[in-house]
Every structure is written in structure tokens, then in C-alpha cells.
């Protein structure tokens, strides 16, 4: 018991990849993040859970500066940005460390599947087209869309679009991939295909920060789980602790409601 605790602690202090310090963010007068600290190690799969409106999306979007924090520091892969007064160059450099997979896919509508994946390589990485094409083709094969490379996003199902979104993120060869509820816009029968690809990527050692309501996935794939409520981290730890033996009342209530949910659908 003691030893395993010790091992986990050592693990958590391993190779730090992302570090958020005291992140605060308000929209108008509404405080959404109230001083959040978050650490993600290299190769770690960190899952953020919590009730809707608790600030999970906002926190994730602070990591790649899609949201400008009012206060705090963001460090990704050795590159630190002071939350409030980051320069354009800082923001660009910070963004180029990570990739993001969006709830509503956000594939480039005017680009084909292949072009979607190549885009970041051509523009941000200044790669030559043939090389970018090869990398993109390989990744699209990997997510099972080798046949669809010339389709436009509107021609694909939600699950297919999200798999392109994942390929687009992988192509950048980022230090970490940020996932914001990657399966919550999907029809139930397509959730599995996306989660299984995410598991595969996790198995390959990619650092992942995932906001999700898929508790079974979290139990299965996460190294570390963070429970957020009302703009603060209430509880965090290995999934078996946070998800199976939560200490805090808020966490217990949240999980109870999630587990009970299917009953209502009958």
C-alpha cells in the first residue's frame, strides 16, 4: 500500500511536459477558472472529468491559448508563457507544441480529408508537399480512412470526421494532444471507433489531455484523472482512486449521476 503510493508519487514527478500554474479566467464578471494548477508528464494520459460548466473546456483551451488566461503561467515542453501578456510570437510557439481534437471536429470545410491532414505540415512545419502527403496518407490509413482521402468533411459521418481530426492532430507530431469531449457529438454507435483509436495512440506513448464523460474509457486508459467543479480541481489521482473510491462528496455525487444516467433512458 505504502510502496504503491510511493511509486505513483515518483511517477507523477517524472518527465514534466505540461505545467499550468495558478490559471485564472473570468468571462465578464463570471469567474470560470479560479486558480488551477495542472501537471502532465510525458507519455501520460490525463483525463479531466466534471459537471458541465465547471471550466474543463476553458482550461484545456488555455493550454494552447485559444483562451487567454487572466493570470497564471503555461509551460509546454520547456516553453513558458506568462498568461496575460503573451506576445503573438509566444502564442504561436506555444500553439505549435500541441495539437487539438475538437468536440465538433472543426475539420477545414474547404479542404479534402487529405488536405486537412496536410495543412498543418505545409503551413506550420513548412514541409514539402510530397513528404506531407506521405505522412498524411500513412496516418489516414492508420485511422482507417485511406479510402476517403479525396472526400470533403461534409461527405463523412461524425465518427469518420473525428478520426480525420485525430489524424490531423497526429500529423503535427505534437508534444501532446488536447481532446475536448471528442465523442460527445457522436452517435452512440460511432463512439467506439474513436475511443479505440485514442487507446491505440495512448499505447504508443503519446501524451494526451482528454476532457470526456466516458468514465469507462477513463478507467481503462487514463494514467491520471482530474475531477473539476466550479473552476477548481476538487480531486485528482489514479483512476482507481478518483473514479472508484472518490474521497470528496462532489466527486461521489457526480459519478453517481453519471452511472445512474442509463436507467433513465429505459
Amino acid at each position: 500500500m505504502l510502496i504503491s503510493d510511493y511509486i505513483i508519487r515518483v511517477d507523477r514527478e517524472g518527465d514534466r511536459l505540461i505545467e499550468l500554474k495558478n490559471i485564472k479566467k473570468s468571462f465578464k464578471k463570471n469567474p470560470v477558472l479560479k486558480g488551477v494548477d495542472l501537471k502532465v508528464n510525458k507519455g501520460e494520459v490525463l483525463v479531466i472529468v466534471g459537471p458541465s460548466g465547471s471550466g474543463k473546456t476553458t482550461l484545456l483551451r488555455c493550454v494552447n491559448y485559444l483562451e487567454r488566461p487572466d493570470e497564471g503561467t503555461i509551460s509546454v515542453d520547456g516553453f513558458s508563457v506568462e498568461g496575460k501578456n503573451a506576445s503573438k510570437k509566444d502564442i504561436l510557439n506555444l500553439r505549435r507544441k500541441t495539437a487539438m481534437v475538437f468536440q465538433h471536429y472543426n475539420l477545414f470545410k474547404n479542404k479534402t480529408v487529405l488536405e486537412n491532414v496536410m495543412e498543418g505540415l505545409l503551413v506550420a512545419k513548412k514541409m514539402k508537399a510530397p513528404e506531407a502527403r506521405n505522412i498524411s496518407m500513412d496516418l489516414l490509413q492508420k485511422v482507417g480512412l485511406g479510402e476517403k482521402i479525396n472526400d470533403y468533411p461534409t461527405q463523412l459521418s461524425g465518427g469518420q470526421q473525428q478520426r480525420v481530426g485525430i489524424a490531423r492532430a497526429l500529423a503535427l507530431n505534437p508534444s501532446a494532444i488536447l481532446f475536448d469531449e471528442p465523442t460527445s457529438a457522436l452517435d452512440p454507435e460511432m463512439v467506439g471507433e474513436v475511443l479505440s483509436i485514442m487507446k491505440k495512440i495512448a499505447g504508443e506513448g503519446m501524451t494526451m489531455v482528454i476532457v470526456t464523460h466516458e468514465i469507462d474509457f477513463a478507467r481503462d486508459a487514463a494514467d491520471h484523472v482530474v475531477f473539476m467543479a466550479d473552476g477548481v480541481i476538487v480531486e485528482q489521482g489514479p483512476p482507481k482512486d478518483v473514479l472508484s473510491h472518490p474521497k470528496h462528496e462532489r466527486t461521489k455525487q457526480f459519478l453517481k449521476r453519471l452511472v445512474r444516467e442509463p436507467e433513465y433512458e429505459i
Binding site: 494552447n64 485559444l66 503573438k88 504561436l92 500553439r95 505549435r96 500541441t98 495539437a99 487539438m100 475538437f102 465538433h104 472543426n106 475539420l107 477545414f108 470545410k109 495543412e119 498543418g120 503551413v123 506550420a124 512545419k125 490531423r168 492532430a169 503535427l172
Partner: peptide, 18 residues
């Protein structure tokens, strides 16, 4: 055009102009 399009562009490392 939806806001998500520009965010996706940012997320793959594009500048605003790009």
C-alpha cells in the same frame, strides 16, 4: 464562417493571416 474553423487553424499552428 464558424469560429471553430479559425480555432482549428490556430490549433495546427497557423497565424491569423494564414
Amino acid at each position: 464562417t464558424s469560429a471553430g474553423q479559425m480555432e482549428a487553424a490556430y490549433s495546427v499552428g497557423m497565424t491569423t493571416a494564414q
